[in-house]
Every structure is written in structure tokens, then in C-alpha cells.
Amino acid sequence: MVEFLQFLVPGILIGGVYALLASGLGLIFGVMRVVNFAQADFMMLAMYLSWALFAGGVGLDPFLAVPAVFFVFLLLGMAVHWLFIRFVIGRRENHDAQVILTIGLGLIFQNLILIKYSSEPRVVAPSYANSGDFIADIFVSRVRLYAFLLSVLVAALVFLFLNRSATGRAIRAASENWEAATYMGVDIDRTNRIAFGVGVALTAVGGSALVTFQSITPFVGLRFVVVMFAAVVLGGLGSVRGAFVGGVLIGIIQSVSQVWTSAAVKNVWVFALFLLILYVRPNGLFGKAQRAI
């Protein structure tokens, strides 16, 4: 039992971070129906930013760097939307263009970082990186706990933003029915830009929560991209709350599967679950059915 819990607890903790990563992807899909294949590469960029702030002389603790990361990536996301994404939004013919555009952007990010920083893995190790506490016989890593708490805090703030602020309501209205939202005077281009910025920033914050226990390479995003999609699909494409629940579930499955199989194949379970959900409940565990015609 203790052994099981020893897998379950870290699973929940890492799941909280996955949830934050996925909620950014879910927000973007929900508002503008764009599946952003570059999302995990924004996460990778944020990890490098955290690393640069920590290792590059400033010595800024990655958890304290979170506000800076958030605002940098909010602006970066809005810029990428303005420069690229807005041209491929909307019509159904644009579906293919969205796929290749975001894949292409992600590749560009990876290779620019590869050119600048090489493929050598980077680590961010603050003084408390290897410490932890025993809570009722279960060892809890301190950095993972902080990462989880940070994710929950940021998720709560986003929830407040989406529900209480005028912009947040406009974003939710657009994700519900963008055509109706335009009739109500919502500026869709602006809403999309902000949503893309916030979505990217959320994933970026998730990335900086990861750096204390995940080494950084230009291609680290590949390991997370399907995890993020799985979480989003599990919770129902386009639902931020669903993406959050999905993320926690994925973390638990990934971790608990190690009771039975090697850690090397833990993602096989995630991918298999992802497929199962796609086949059985393509609208996610909490998603709504759509009309056929």
C-alpha cells in the first residue's frame, strides 16, 4: 500500500504540472479551434528562459521567475498570433495549414535553440533540489511539491480571470460560439490574440515549474507533446477545466504504471489511454456531443 502511495503521490504532483501545461493548449483550442503543435516547444523555450535566468549570472530561483516568464510568454504568444496564427484561423480549408504552420514553428524553435545552446542537457538545481520530507511514510520531493502548488495557484488565477474579468468573459463567449460573440461586439481578433498569449503563457509557466526536476534539451517538447494532447482530449477538447482534470489523471497513470511495468515504457500507458479515450469518448470525459449536420 505504501509502495502504491509512493507512486500515487508523485503522480498527482506531476499531474498538476501536466494540467497547467495542458490547460494552455486547451484554452487555445477552445477559443480558436487551432490545435497548436508548437505548444510543447513554447514550454521548451520557457524552460531555457528559466535556466538562463538561474544559471546566467542572475541566479534567479525558477519559482520566483514565474511572473517574468508569464509576461514574456504572454507577449511572445500574442506576437506569434499576430505574425502567423491569425492568417490560418477560421475556415475549414485552413485546417491543414494550421497543422503544418504550428509544426513548422515548433521545429524552428527547436533548431534555433539547438544552434544557440547545442543539444547538451541543461539542469537547474537550486539548493533544495534534492531535499524532501516524509509525510506519513511517503517521501515527497520538495521541488515537485512546489511545482504542484504553483500549478494549482496559477490555475486558480486563470479560472478567476476567465470568470470574472471582461476579457475573460469575452474569451469564454468566443469559445462557446464565436459567431454569436461577434454579434455581441466581441473583437474576435483581439480575443484570439489574448487567448493565444495566455494559453502560451500558461504552458510556459508549467515549463518553468518543471525545470527543477526535468533536464532541458531543445527536443524536450517531444516528450510532452502527446502527454499534453492526451490530457486535453481526456478532459474534452476545448475545455480548460477538463484539461486540468485530464492532466492530473495522466500524471497518476504515468506514475502508478511503474508499479507494474518499467519506467521506460510509462508513456505507452499514456498513449494507449489517449487512444482509448479518442475511440470511446472523442468528446472527452466531460465533453458535450455535437450535432451531426
Binding site: 502567423f84 513548422g104 521545429l107 524552428i108 527547436q110 533548431n111 547545442s118
Partner: peptide
Amino acid sequence: VPGAQELVYAAALVLVALLIP
């Protein structure tokens, strides 16, 4: 420039998406 090959494919994808989908 280690990622030169991949950058060619990436740039091609982005340009095609924006200009001639």
C-alpha cells in the same frame, strides 16, 4: 549550424501554410 536541414523543412512548412496552403 547543427539544425540547418530541419530549419529548411520547418521554414518550408511555415511559408507554404501562409502563402500557398
